[in-house]
């Protein structure tokens, strides 16, 4: 599936919910399925800056696609990163670089997109794209 397909799938899933509580509960559940980062990569240099909770992300090239794994000490943050990784993992670097992140707004989590928000969703997106740029450069 393309990143856009996955994003539409996530939007569909979230459209079933009527209120914030159900949306958050679902996000928290998604966080529990996050592909966890291997402990050896839980290093200081893999921590995403700008988050009030700790977020570690690791990226690995498998063939011509990037696989992301991550973890956080806060469960809501874990849910957000799980949603991002679901859309971006196992994709070509170029597609990750070009992807937009409007779907976060469309699933009713707009408040997390504000750059002033301490959870650092913006930093997470930036970090995933940075990995993609780095790998894209290698491929070229």
């Amino acid at each position: 599936m393309t990143i856009e397909d996955i994003q539409n799938e996530i939007i569909d899933e979230f459209s079933m919910f009527d209120d914030w509580e159900e949306r958050y509960q679902y996000m928290i559940d998604l966080g529990k399925d996050l592909p966890l980062i291997d402990d050896q990569y839980k290093t200081e240099s893999n921590i995403i800056k700008g988050c009030q909770s700790k977020v570690w992300v690791h990226a690995e090239m498998k063939g011509d696609k990037i696989t992301f794994t991550a973890d956080s000490d806060a469960i809501i943050t874990k849910g957000i990163i799980a949603i991002l990784i679901r859309a971006f993992s196992d994709q070509h670097p170029k597609d990750i670089i070009d992807a937009n992140t409007d779907f976060i707004d469309k699933i009713g989590l707009k408040e997390h997109l504000s750059p002033t928000r301490a959870n650092g969703l913006v930093s997470m997106v930036k970090q995933l794209k940075m990995y993609a740029i780095a790998y894209q450069t290698q491929l070229n």
């Binding site: 000490d73 806060a74 943050t77």
Partner: peptide, 9 residues
């Protein structure tokens, strides 16, 4: 539970 999660809820 992380304080950030409680604050968000």
């Amino acid at each position: 539970i992380h304080p950030y999660d409680i604050g968000t809820i």
